[in-house]
Design a protein around this nucleic acid. Structure first.
Lengths: 160, 160
DNA sequence: TCTATTATGGATAAAAGATATCCACTATCT
DNA sequence: AGATAGTGGATATCTTTTATCCATAATAGA
């Protein structure tokens, strides 16, 4: 019952791309240096975000990654889903049947238990669906005007 | 973002103890055989449930484990907490500071993000607090009368 | 069209956490 | 005192996550 650290990495990536000057892709090397992970590993994370539909990749010279949609239309849950998938948090391994036998009441119990946890998970997801990247950024910087910059032009030493 | 399989094991254990004749402890060997795990491993799980306050251990001859409270006063969340702990599902590893520098806005962002996820987790926990072991059992067996038995007297072959 | 640049994908290694077991020890009941 | 049952430490195994390298594919620009 932990989110993987990939979620924090993804959050940083999305924040960078959300504050990136429009139409200028950020290269994965720039991001990997800033996050302190290897270029090749970072690309795996980027790929998950591409597959998840949060960002787009631009190959070739002056390529890199850009947001696939506006920060206003990216709920936080999408970020979690992209990195972790959205499988049920609980799925029976068949233990109940092993312990109590392959009988109706056991089967019903398994389904009921899975259902209870699923509903809790849905409540969790609903909360993270209500918060968008834009709202999160605006509340963090205390203004509705999100400044953009070109991260490709900023060295690792300069901060902010 | 997965519950460990220990939760399913714990659920089976609590169901057994909830249908156990009052004041007759069930030995861990009986439970371990039924769940198909080694006696020593099962005892680790039992211990977590003891520490979590769900069950009580009775050492010595004719000892074993009994529920520490009625099924009506055990919410499902207690079971999850006992096995998994109840740490925040998301905690920053310090990556944000590394990426964006040790500045106020970064610090604020980390706190805000942790907060968002914490609230989602609370929604999850609230759902699992509303369902008790008793309610779960009653809805599973379709009656309010929960039959008790002595699991120590039932071989692994007999089912239910 | 050629070349430099950038992302993609497969193979694989290292680290961490979950799962599992053994055994020596302690506590209790009869 | 002796048998029974839980406790706790050490440790092994498995799975997942984290991470890296390198060969390949795709694109932009000269």
């Amino acid at each position: 019952m932990k989110l993987t650290s990939g979620v924090e990495q993804a959050a940083c990536i999305i924040v960078m791309l959300s504050t990136q000057a429009a139409d200028i892709p950020v290269t994965s090397d720039v991001i990997s240096e800033r996050l302190g992970v290897s270029p090749s590993y970072l690309k795996k994370i980027m790929r998950k975000l591409v597959v998840g539909g949060l960002i787009k990749s631009v190959p070739g010279v002056n390529g890199g990654f850009i947001l696939a949609k506006t920060p206003a239309s990216i709920p936080i849950i999408d970020l979690v889903d992209a990195i972790e998938g959205n499988e049920p948090i609980f799925q029976s391994t068949g233990l109940v049947r092993k312990a109590f036998g392959d009988i109706d009441v056991a089967e019903k119990g398994v389904l009921k238990f899975e259902n209870i946890v699923n509903e809790a998970q849905e409540a969790f997801r609903a909360k993270l669906s209500n918060m968008t990247v834009e709202k999160f950024l605006q509340e963090t910087i205390d203004t509705n005007e999100i400044q953009v910059k070109d991260w490709n032009q900023i060295s690792d030493e300069d901060n902010d």
